[in-house]
Simulated scan of single mutants.
Amino acid sequence: MNFIGALCLLLILTTLAGHLANRIGIPAVIGQIIVGIIVGPALLNWIHLDSALNLFSQIGVIILMFLGGLESNLKLLRKYLRPAIIVAIVGVIFPVIMIGAAALAYSFSPLEAAFIGVVFSATSVSISVAVLRDYQALDTKEGATILGAAVADDIIGVILLSIMISMMGTAGVKTSGAPTNLLVVFTEQIAFFGGTYLMVRWIVPYLMRIGERLLMTSSVTITSMVICLGMAWAADAVGLSGAVGAFFAGIAVAHTPYRATIENHMEPIGYAVFVPLFFVSIGLNMSLDHLGNSIVFVAVLTFLACVSKLLGCGLGALMNGFNIHSSYMIGSGMISRGEMGLITAQIGFSSGLLSGTYYSDLILVIILSTLIAPFLLKHAIRRLPDNDRANLPLDMD
């Protein structure tokens, strides 16, 4: 099926699936992911994730995270930075130990087991952002902690992955044709966050004022899109997820007078085409070819993938004074692996750490945990005490 036909079909199906999901009380993203599973290689095999669909899905996650940053409260993010870092650290330790130990029990080598643990230490907050936006919980102390922890989690994951690749003695992740050096990566990431501070504080407000003076239709929106894509590219260039750059681009634009205009323009652009294709792409990655031979292994890892993040990040939240309900919400918001888990697993497969069979199993576990995460997060939000739920979104004034 050619790209235009596939795009048309996917937009019809994701719209209907999202509608039905909302009607029966589950997050719309679940319906969209299931569409990818049904029409993809896992079941009907009608559509495959080709380069064009993959490009649209990448733009989708960038726009989604830009909107997440646009709706975030920078005061909250600063206030809950320390808890977010602790949540991220504890939330990385638990999966590495628990899932690594399980992999050892299945006769993986210590290096392979450690790498599998690293794969599931990653968090993709894009799924959680979609659910938090649906329930107006993005601009809360729990939402701020989830977002901050996910960014810290991304940095820790990149460092761990770089260490693993170095231990293998392979070329691994490359920059400009040369093997990645951990010190170089770390230095580049520090430079990125330094540049991000300058963008938020001075550069983006200046660029947005210039954009307003341009004699072009939607010039302010175009300027914000350039900032979004540019910061996403910069984050990717230093080994971080492009979603991280897009998130900070959203924060930067949010602190200009153009926030409402940009949100009103960008949301239709993202949710009309690109964001649904991001969720569909998760389902299109799924394959059931080897499930019969490894169903127990997949079930065990899926259980541990969910429990390790729920316990680890929840414990990190409790250590910082959150109550049990807020800690459950934060732990649930960190479960999704999404594109970060898929990217990490792909790097390991390309580097020879995993065979094709085990790579397929890990992809399936990543997708299953990503499917489960929105249900748990919705349940956690609904279990907040009435006085806490009344504060969604939280008023900082």
Rank of each mutant, 00 (worst) to 15 (best):
E112D: 09
A114H: 00
A114E: 03
F115W: 04
F115R: 02
G117Q: 01
G117C: 05
A122C: 14
A122P: 06
V125Q: 08
V125N: 02
I127R: 00
I127G: 02
V129L: 14
V129Y: 02
V129M: 12
V131K: 00
V131M: 03
L132V: 07
L132S: 11
Y135S: 04
Y135F: 15
Y135K: 12
A137K: 08
E142I: 07
E142Q: 13
G143A: 05
A144G: 10
T145M: 01
I146L: 09
L147I: 11
L147Y: 02
V151G: 03
V151W: 00
D154E: 09
D154A: 10
I155Q: 00
I156D: 03
G157Q: 04
G157L: 06
G157A: 14
I159L: 13
L160C: 10
L161K: 00
S162G: 15
S162M: 10
S162R: 07
I163K: 02
M164K: 03
M164C: 15
I165Q: 13
S166K: 13
M168F: 09
T170N: 13
T170R: 08
T170W: 01
T170L: 09
V173T: 13
V173A: 13
T175R: 08
T175W: 06
G177L: 10
G177R: 07
T180A: 14
T180Y: 05
N181P: 02
L183C: 05
V185G: 04
Q189K: 00
I190V: 15
F193Q: 06
T196K: 04
Y197V: 15
L198N: 05
L198M: 12
M199D: 06
M199V: 10
V200T: 10
I203S: 08
V204P: 08
V204Y: 03
P205L: 08
Y206P: 04
L207G: 03
M208D: 07
I210F: 13
E212K: 13
M216S: 12
M216D: 03
S219K: 04
V220Q: 13
T221K: 07
I222G: 08
T223A: 15
S224P: 07
M225C: 14
I227Y: 04
I227W: 03
C228P: 06
C228K: 01
L229N: 04
A232F: 02
W233A: 15
A234V: 04
D236W: 03
G239C: 06
G239M: 02
S241E: 12
A243P: 05
A246L: 03
A246G: 11
F247W: 01
A249F: 09
